[in-house]
């Protein structure tokens, strides 16, 4: 690179970086009247802009999924709390009937292909010795436990940060 070209690139660089003085900007304006210099400056500026936007996009792209996941959790959280509160209210207002003996229970419909499965979210009443909690959810996917408070209409919501584990049976089929 010759000295003139080197000086010209310094000038381009200073103008693009916002470091040029008024005199330097005026000098560049004068030089840009030359078509060759103008084409060179435009190419220089275009490459610089392309590099800048590529770098910003690359760094933003890594951060984006994290932000959206967090946002998604915040969005899902409010309806989850609402649904949980509704279920708790229903349980409070309409407690489950006392357990009936097996022989008095009506026959449940089912077939070989679609056997009746026990309800997944079974509500279990705890012995009377426990003052609280009076009701809880079992076998649930929810991360919330709703516990009725001392007063009717009062509930406590317990957030459970649960690590789910699964038991897998091992069979020696061979």
């Amino acid at each position: 690179m010759n000295a003139n070209a080197d000086r010209l690139e310094h000038l381009f660089s200073r103008v693009l970086d916002g470091a040029a003085s008024r005199d330097e900007r005026d000098l560049l304006d004068t030089l840009l009247r030359d078509e060759a210099v103008r084409a060179r400056f435009e190419a220089y500026a275009a490459l610089d802009e392309a590099v800048g936007s590529a770098l910003r996009a690359d760094l933003d792209r890594a951060a984006a999924p994290v932000v959206s996941r967090r946002l998604g959790w915040r969005i899902r959280r409010a309806p989850a709390v609402g649904v949980a509160a509704c279920i708790a209210t229903l349980i409070w207002l309409y407690p489950p009937p006392p357990a009936t003996p097996d022989h008095e229970r009506p026959q449940q419909a089912g077939s070989w292909f679609a056997p009746v499965e026990p309800p997944h979210d079974a509500v279990e009443m705890l012995p009377a010795t426990f003052e609280r909690p009076q009701a809880r959810f079992r076998g649930t996917e929810r991360h919330w436990i709703i516990v009725p408070g001392d007063e009717p209409g009062q509930f406590m919501i317990v957030e459970v940060d649960r690590v789910r584990t699964e038991v897998t049976g091992l069979h020696e089929d061979y």
Binding site: M1, E9, R14, A19, L47, D48, V51
Partner: peptide, 16 residues
Amino acid sequence: VETRLVRGRALLRELL
């Protein structure tokens, strides 16, 4: 810093 930016841009152009 100024020199490194100018040289960096020149080198980038050569690489491309």
